Amino acid sequence: MSLRAVAIERQHRRRCLFKYDGYRCLVKKSGETVELVSRNGKALNDSFPDVADAVRQVPGDFVWDSELTVDDRAGHSDFERLQQRARTRIPLRVHAAARESPARLYVFDMLARAERDMRAPPLEVRKQRLRDSFENSAVLVYASGIVGAGEWVWEQVISHAFEGMVAKRLASPYEGRRSPDWLKIKNPDYGRPAALSWARRYARLDRSPACQQCSLGSIPYPVQIVTHSLLR
């Protein structure tokens, strides 16, 4: 049975979300300190200060899991423009790039809140805590997903040319690795040469010891513990 068939057959026990075409981004906030960290441990603050500023406005300390994108006017993720922004570091050019190619953060999970590690509670508990933590804006978007509608979500993926969908078991804890609790189903007709090139470039880096750590500095427990385990 295919992953899509499993997701649809068990859709009433899973929350199905669109899979956005961007950078997986770990978001850490402690006081006024915000860190945006890519899956391979790369700091993204310098290239995306607009996103860091938006996160800074959210009350409290937390760790989020999210997808960082640059969308076109039709609402589709534009990976090439995202890469261009990520390569831009000179402040004047960064501000110009933010105006021309505004970034968006689709936030889909909460790993820590204040001094509480949130990875063990079920997905539905984490989603509710996340939903209560901020309001949607042009930059920050709560990726809600839909329970019991896997077939409909997949139809939208195909008709609107999204990258794919993710079907997450409602009772699942957070795991920073591949798991049958989270089924990722790719759209077979979706293509993005730039993204495939990026993936090949960092495939080995993702598994290297250097990417198991990042600059944690002032980020306290449990945020530090959650961050370290996520990047392993």
Rank of each mutant, 00 (worst) to 15 (best):
L3W: 07
R4E: 12
V6F: 12
V6I: 15
A7H: 08
A7I: 10
A7C: 13
I8F: 10
I8T: 11
I8P: 09
E9T: 15
Q11H: 12
H12D: 15
H12T: 14
R13Q: 15
R13F: 14
R13Y: 14
R13K: 14
R14I: 14
R15F: 11
R15K: 15
R15N: 13
C16A: 14
C16W: 11
K19H: 06
K19C: 02
K19L: 08
K19E: 06
D21W: 07
Y23C: 04
Y23I: 05
R24A: 06
C25V: 06
C25L: 08
C25W: 00
C25P: 01
L26Y: 03
L26P: 01
V27F: 01
K28N: 10
K28G: 10
K28F: 09
K29P: 00
S30I: 05
S30G: 06
G31N: 02
T33S: 08
T33H: 07
T33M: 07
V34A: 01
E35P: 05
E35N: 12
E35Y: 09
L36M: 07
S38L: 03
R39L: 05
R39H: 02
R39D: 05
N40I: 04
K42A: 08
K42Q: 09
K42I: 06
A43P: 12
L44V: 13
L44H: 09
N45L: 14
D46N: 14
F48D: 03
A54H: 07
A54L: 06
V55A: 02
V55K: 00
V55P: 00
R56W: 00
R56K: 00
V58G: 00
D61E: 04
D61W: 00
V63S: 02
V63W: 02
W64S: 00
D65L: 02
S66I: 07
E67N: 05
L68C: 05
T69M: 10
D71T: 07
D71I: 03
D71S: 07
D72I: 08
R73H: 09
R73I: 09
A74R: 13
A74Y: 10
A74L: 12
A74K: 13
G75K: 03
H76D: 10
D78V: 09
D78P: 09
D78G: 09
L82Q: 04
L82K: 03
Q83L: 12
Q83E: 12
R85A: 08
T88G: 08
R89F: 14
R89T: 15
R89H: 15
I90M: 13
I90R: 10
I90Q: 11
P91T: 11
L92A: 11
R93M: 13
R93P: 09
R93W: 08
V94E: 03
V94S: 03
H95S: 11
A96H: 00
A96F: 01
A96G: 04
A96M: 00
